[in-house]
Design a protein around this nucleic acid. Structure first.
Lengths: 148, 148
DNA sequence: GTGAATGGTCAAGCTGCTTGACTATATGCA
DNA sequence: TGCATATAGTCAAGCAGCTTGACCATTCAC
């Protein structure tokens, strides 16, 4: 594949990702969840299954644990999560979503569906599913980092 | 399309975009261009055709013109671009790439091709082209914003 | 010609991240 | 068991990149 083609693919990918992030964020805000940033959504995704420690969250987000701890401070203060004693390690604390945190996560899913809607209209549902499947196959396992 | 499917698509897209950005950046640094950030690449892309004003660059990047001006300061100081008087407007200044700026842009294209290489191996060239075409059709015209 | 709009910069401030230092608990090994 | 080392987390300070606000020079509209 030519360099220019690879660059066009990259640019399109980053442009679409940036717009998608913005639209999801706007949709979440429109549903009444204020003071929440896109990065919080990535944190919620990691906390959702059954909670996580600050260190695990830091690894997931690709930042230092101090930064992750500050982020947790913020979402705790705003009522989206809470810190509980860790059941198996007295050093650690388990960060879990509150009901408001879950509601915000559901709002983000709705907003995502809304943002993807135009793609379905433009490409058709099958094509969008194909897009998803291809992306899932090349998606990394590592931390979720910002696009720039 | 279900909310959860839209969310999976979004997450995969953002993960791939984040990893791609990081790999291109690493590739550029590996080619000897230090002190350059991913955001500079988006600026170079806008400057490449025939230069641009600070205000145009700000619109392209989705930041204030003060921020764009600071970014231009930086890439000028590092030798990637220079400010010239604007041929048609004495208020404005045309920011153009230097030869080093062009070299860095070519390095970014090479790095992009390198980063996309594994996708071609995994999906095949036709599938990657299909991915590019679909992304290009849903790519926005607006500013290139960071993914989060 | 004159008032409003536009391109650009300077200065100050804020936010979110980093590095460095530290405490408390857990783990590995003599 | 006891002690050295590693790990979870926090506090504090600093920094980078962005924002808002103010300002000057030039251009545009009428």
């Amino acid at each position: 594949m030519q360099n220019s083609e690879a660059m066009a693919l990259s640019a399109a990918l980053l442009a679409v990702a940036g717009e998608l992030t913005q639209r999801i964020h706007e949709g979440v805000v429109a549903r009444g969840f204020e003071g929440v940033r896109p990065a919080h959504g990535f944190a919620f995704a990691r906390l959702a299954p059954g909670g996580a420690t600050v260190t695990e969250l830091a690894a997931h987000l690709g930042v230092t644990k101090q930064a992750a701890s500050q982020l947790v401070d913020e979402i705790v203060r705003k009522g989206y999560a809470e810190r509980r004693p860790h059941p198996a390690d007295a050093r650690a604390r388990l960060v879990v979503l509150t009901e408001q945190g879950w509601a915000c996560t559901r709002a983000a899913e709705e907003a995502a569906a809304e943002a993807v809607g135009p793609w379905v209209e433009l490409l058709g549902e099958g094509e969008v599913r194909a897009l998803r499947d291809r992306l899932l196959r090349i998606a990394p396992y590592g931390p979720i980092r910002p696009a720039w």
